[in-house]
């Protein structure tokens, strides 16, 4: 079965900015986090991605995480300082 690329939007929780991302179903949540963090120059930090109220697991493929065309995910800082 051929899986077509699909697009989602990712929102930067810190600025409110959004970016469109083209993905394959077998891309992982980790890859979304890395791409978005690199795009916004946030490589030096820890983040989670959420869909609605649910934090998505990094290793999960987007298809398994229930991410679909036109979904809006949010990149949220998960700070490690104390």
């Amino acid at each position: 079965m051929v899986l077509l690329p699909f697009r989602i939007k990712v929102k930067n929780a810190e600025t409110g900015a959004t970016v469109e991302m083209e993905l394959e179903q077998n891309n992982t949540v980790d890859e979304v986090i890395e791409s978005a963090a690199t795009f916004w120059n946030k490589e030096m930090g820890t983040y989670v991605v959420r869909k609605g109220k649910k934090v998505l697991r990094g290793t999960q493929a987007l298809s398994d995480a229930g991410v679909r065309e036109d979904d809006m995910l949010e990149l949220v800082p998960d700070p490690e300082g104390g």
Partner: peptide, 25 residues
């Protein structure tokens, strides 16, 4: 970090732990 904050509640024996929410970052 700065103005960003997070509190995680872990309640064994059930449910997620702190590490469940961690990823490659």
């Amino acid at each position: 970090e700065g103005f960003a904050g997070r509190v995680m509640i872990v309640r064994p024996p059930g449910g997620a732990c702190l590490q469940c929410g961690m990823n490659r970052s």
